[in-house]
Amino acid sequence: MSYRLRKQSISHEVRRVARKALEGGLKEMLTLDERGSDTAVHEARKHLKRVRALIRLIRPAMGDAFYKRENAALRETAQRMASIRDAHVRVQTIQKLIARSRSHRAAFDYIHEAMNARLQEVLDESGTNHWNRHVAADIEHAICRVDDWPVQELEASSLRDGLKSAFKKARRALATAQLDLTDDHLHTLRKRIKDVRYHLQLLGGDHLPQIEALTQKFRDLGDTLGDDHDLAELLTARDETPLPHSVDWANLERAIAALRTRSQRAALRLATSLLAPKPRAFADLILDHWEKWRSSP
């Protein structure tokens, strides 16, 4: 239950969860050579996302000054790993396309080779600036700040307000994406969906079945939107990665367009269903389950 609020005081649990997640990210940086950069970066960034989701949950009670300070610091730390993350994701995405493609294999192989070459360049560049040491130092500083988080007055109502706010923002992001289906709007929707998913995980108690089922649906939706984002990001490499034959990128664009059309339709349908409840009703439902569990023997 490392990323779940247990039955102790809310202030104690918020600090414990934050500290545990940050320590997980720090461990990834300190064991980078053993784990490999792709796994270490992915896991470290995931730990940081969990902490950022946690502070969004308590933002209404804590105020903007606290949130903006901590969120900006954690975002900057994550950004140190962005180029490595992006390069790895592009390689993994083209590998998935190759595995499921029945045509244009030669074109995709050319692009795969180019993405691998770019990944190696990024790894070579990062090896000279000791980025993981800077990330580790940032996380250590963040761990030290947790004890000073002013969370003493947090109550269940604080979490209720935070979840309602997150759900409302997800609904707003969905409405925006439905009106104007751009990569940026879909990416914003994905981030807001992940916030709700992380909040549900925090409030899942001892794997409460009602909340677990919802958490899985939000996770599935976030994964679908994440795959769509990865496809969009792969295409951004076109300008910086010229190939001998321009038709190779054209073939990739056509293949990606077909995949994205289907996945986006499915994602928007699921998002519309999951975000149908009113924010207050959704927050009340989840917090009622959590408080009932919390007060049980």
Rank of each mutant, 00 (worst) to 15 (best):
M1K: 13
Y3C: 10
R4Q: 13
Q8I: 03
H12G: 02
H12Y: 06
L22F: 07
G24P: 10
K27I: 02
E28W: 06
E28C: 12
L30H: 12
T31C: 10
S37V: 11
S37A: 14
H42W: 09
E43K: 12
E43R: 12
A44D: 03
H47F: 10
L48Y: 05
K49T: 06
A53H: 05
I55Y: 07
R56K: 10
L57A: 01
I58Q: 03
P60Q: 08
M62A: 05
G63S: 02
A65L: 13
A65G: 04
F66H: 05
E70G: 04
N71P: 06
A72F: 13
R75G: 06
R80M: 15
R80G: 08
S83K: 06
S83R: 09
I84L: 14
D86G: 01
H88P: 11
V89E: 07
V89S: 01
V91N: 01
Q95L: 08
K96N: 08
I98A: 00
A99M: 11
R100P: 01
S101A: 14
S101H: 04
S101M: 01
R102C: 07
S103L: 10
S103A: 15
H104L: 07
H104W: 05
H104Y: 09
A106T: 15
A106S: 15
A107G: 10
F108L: 14
F108E: 05
D109K: 12
Y110E: 14
H112R: 15
H112P: 00
E113W: 14
A114M: 07
R118P: 04
L119T: 06
V122W: 08
E125P: 12
S126Y: 13
G127D: 12
N129C: 15
H134D: 14
A136M: 02
D138K: 04
E140D: 14
C144G: 08
D147R: 10
P150Q: 08
Q152D: 10
Q152S: 09
E155H: 04
S157I: 06
S158N: 07
D161K: 12
D161C: 03
D161R: 13
G162R: 00
L163Q: 06
L163D: 02
S165I: 07
F167H: 06
F167G: 03
K169P: 02
K169W: 04
K169L: 15
R171A: 12
A175I: 05
A177F: 11
D183H: 09
H187I: 11
H187T: 14
T188K: 13
I193N: 07
I193H: 05
I193C: 13
D195P: 08
Y198F: 15
H199A: 04
H199M: 12
Q201I: 03
L203T: 00
Q216P: 02
Q216H: 12
Q216A: 12
F218P: 03
D220L: 10
T224I: 03
G226P: 09
D227M: 12
H229Y: 05
A232V: 01
L234C: 00
R238D: 04
R238I: 01
E240F: 04
P242A: 00
S246T: 06
S246Y: 09
D248F: 06
R254A: 08
A255T: 08
I256V: 12
L259T: 07
T261M: 05
R262V: 14
A266E: 08
L270K: 14
T272Y: 06
L275C: 11
A276G: 11
K278E: 15
K278Y: 13
P279N: 13
R280I: 06
I286S: 02
H289Q: 15
S296V: 05
P297M: 10
